[in-house]
């Protein structure tokens, strides 16, 4: 903190960020109505992320249920100075999904590469403009990656593969994979404008 003022990563959809953050902060004081708002604001990305990792509706719903209960229980730990509320719960959800993939017997039968395929598009009719804008922004950022960076990110984030496994899969030195993942995220961060304010 001495060298940098960290008020945390700022997403561009500031209004959206603010509402989910405020809702979670209020929920931390026991406000169930605020928690419902937090759920509504974040669940499409939470469920979308988990579904893309697990590719199974029933399991994904379980994870979403678990993770929102955990979020309710531990809401006091959310620190808006260190990230967004949506980022907080998506991170929790993603980790749970990945843990499931890794521990599941079925994971060996799973075609990792299939996990990369994008699922059918969102069918909601009520997407708000800022949601659309953010999606476009992320897509633009993804298109700024090199193909090998994109591949590594997809294998890791959606395939649930460890960097070690990715190195084996792609027959690359581990150091190359680490660098690739890091540089890809730095690129995404810069294009998306996730910065330390």
């Amino acid at each position: 903190m001495s060298t940098m003022t960290t008020s945390g990563p700022r997403a561009t959809g500031a209004a959206e960020r603010g509402s989910a953050d405020d809702a979670l902060l209020a929920a931390a004081t026991g406000d169930q109505h605020a928690f419902a708002q937090f759920y509504d604001a974040t669940v499409p990305v939470v469920f979308g992320t988990v579904l893309r990792v697990l590719r199974d509706h029933a399991q994904s719903e379980e994870v979403v249920q678990e993770v929102f209960l955990e979020a309710w229980r531990t809401a006091v730990r959310f620190d808006p100075a260190r990230g967004t509320a949506r980022g907080w719960i998506v991170t929790m959800a993603h980790r749970r999904a990945v843990d499931r993939v890794r521990s599941s017997q079925a994971s060996s039968d799973r075609d990792e590469r299939a996990g990369i395929r994008e699922p059918a598009p969102y069918d909601s009719v009520s997407e708000e403009v800022e949601v659309l804008l953010e999606r476009e922004e992320v897509q633009r950022a993804l298109s700024a990656l090199t193909p090998v960076q994109r591949e590594a990110v997809d294998l890791a984030y959606y395939g649930g593969r460890t960097h070690r496994e990715i190195a084996e899969d792609l027959r690359l030195p581990l150091g190359t994979v680490k660098t690739r993942l890091r540089d890809a995220l730095i690129r995404l961060r810069d294009v998306m404008g996730v910065t330390v304010a």
């Binding site: 997403a11 499409p44 990305v45 939470v46 469920f47 979308g48 992320t49 579904l51 893309r52 990230g83 967004t84 949506r86 980022g87 998506v90 991170t91 993603h94 994008e118 699922p119 598009p121 969102y122 909601s124 949601v131 953010e134 999606r135 992320v138 897509q139 993804l142 990110v153 984030y157 995404l188 998306m192 996730v194």
Partner: peptide, 9 residues
């Protein structure tokens, strides 16, 4: 955490 924005569900 924003990657999933592209495929909400």
């Amino acid at each position: 955490s924003r990657l999933g924005v592209t495929t909400p569900a």
